[in-house]
Design a protein around this nucleic acid. Sequence first.
DNA 1: AAACTGAAGGAAATCGATTGCCTGCACGCT
DNA 2: AGCGTGCAGGCAATCGATTTCCTTCAGTTT
Lengths: 324, 324
Amino acid sequence: MAALAGVSTGTVSKALNGRGSLHPDTRRRVQQAAEQLGFVANAAARSLHTGRTYTVGMITTDTIGRFSIPLLIGAEDALGAGRMSVFLCDARDDVIREQYYLRTLLSRNVDGIIVTGRRTQARAPIGAGLPVPVVYAFISSTDPDDCSVVPDEADGARRAVQHLLAAGRRRIAHITGPEHHHSATVRARAATETLAAEGLSLAAPVLYGEWSEAWGRQAADMLLSTATGVDAVFCGSDQIARGVAEALRDAGRDIPRDVALVGFDNWDVMVDASRPPLTSIDMDLEGIGRSAAELLLAAINGDPVHGPQMRPCRLIPRASTAMG
Amino acid sequence: MAALAGVSTGTVSKALNGRGSLHPDTRRRVQQAAEQLGFVANAAARSLHTGRTYTVGMITTDTIGRFSIPLLIGAEDALGAGRMSVFLCDARDDVIREQYYLRTLLSRNVDGIIVTGRRTQARAPIGAGLPVPVVYAFISSTDPDDCSVVPDEADGARRAVQHLLAAGRRRIAHITGPEHHHSATVRARAATETLAAEGLSLAAPVLYGEWSEAWGRQAADMLLSTATGVDAVFCGSDQIARGVAEALRDAGRDIPRDVALVGFDNWDVMVDASRPPLTSIDMDLEGIGRSAAELLLAAINGDPVHGPQMRPCRLIPRASTAMG
DNA sequence: AAACTGAAGGAAATCGATTGCCTGCACGCT
DNA sequence: AGCGTGCAGGCAATCGATTTCCTTCAGTTT
């Protein structure tokens, strides 16, 4: 490489990185030679000298990828501009695996780490006194000093309920996931409080169950047989909402005329295939991934941000709550 | 580090890597010191010397992750044992992005590259004369010399049809995705040929459409109004199958008594939530990922395998074809 | 013409771990 | 006592790029 351009390796480095003072002709000659040979600097050698690897690790516990893929895409967007690459590690809900990956990432001298998961519930910090900055995305850390980027699920639930209220609904039910699941309780509480602020309350006690369509169908049947006059259901997930939609359909209720329906997650597979398509709350996972990556970059550059960062949700209206 | 154990850096290296001849006590002392300091060797420095990075790149065009996540998990399984890490790059169906990622991976001196995508159709090789081995997973390369690990979709279709035949069905229809989609035509042809081998033919011409539930519903309605006596439908995807299930249900047909149903992909979200749960063909994506990684490792170690490797499918029976 | 200035680019140290080579020392043999 | 044998561990070269320092030389100034 250096030989082809007839200069020393030091000069090559200066030419390609725009350092030092070189004759424009020399610079051009080196660049041409590099082009011709398809020369790309060895990242290992470079990082050895600079102390940076332009690499970040992403540790996820979400095997399915439904949440972590959008987060990854968002993060890649923000990092790609800084020419950084991402090591994706799937810890599969296993603490041993997680610690193994953590050590691996540290031995690779990543510049920073993003930790994500399937649930929004706060988790124990991945490690203490780590030599690199860590940002939690989607999930948060129990250490209030750690930087976390999380969706404001209460905000999402509020938007859902207010949307239903704006559509003139007053007898609203809530069907959601397991009571021990953080997201379920946060969303349920926010829904209850939003109604309370209007002097209303839920048309039935919150129905806690599973994050499945089967539970949505079952819960809807229970609602139909016990609660009267329910004119809207806010569901803790799109899967539950779709199950509810099917049960209501089977029972001959029209959506949205008789009962309006709002889901949560805005998962395309569910909202589009449901009959009718579902109005849903979008947590903007890509945006969360992007924010997390930006905060990580800031921390790497010496401007760390501490504490949890809440990001608002969006309501995506579809036929299941169509007004008119 | 070296100071704490009172030895030279060379000795530390030998102690931790089990090389050279050292006194057992010294070795132990060094290991303890390393433990105490949480010392892990700098991967960049090591790779500079050995020429290997113990890193592979995975370039995918499957933004959604439904196919690439299982592939990644399988690959991680096979690579993790060799202590290798994976750079995941999402090219998002963009050639420019793909080439950019390719260069990035090369500059990071990955030991090898796995290329995956959303469709099984053969694609142009990602690059010619690359300095590292490349294995295609799920998709294949148009260069017959490239190593590809792909699902044997024809085998899957055959199993589906034979399963229906074994259940005593004789008037079998096939609803699938777009005709220009490789998977759709391969599966349709294999289904037709399997029937032909038994002296039978499809109960209706292949219905090509989209990979969506909506198309499944629509096609099922068409079948109901035009074809008579259809007692089974083999669908090109689980989404289509679920749409068919809903339409049949709406029309009062019992599954599997009146019509048996087989899907393709064995996508848990669809097969479990469908009423009844769907019998489906599993392409064993994790296995494909694992195989691809193993073949890549072999190539890295100097034993390259050329040409496409077909992997058989599995039929997962569920209620939609329950016999009896 | 001598001295000065500054641009251009080469020489060599550096990053951290690995490894071949070599030395020093203890022990055993004659 | 003298010499050989072999283990333990230090020294220094090496990987490839970056960067500091320094040399060289052309052009300018007095």
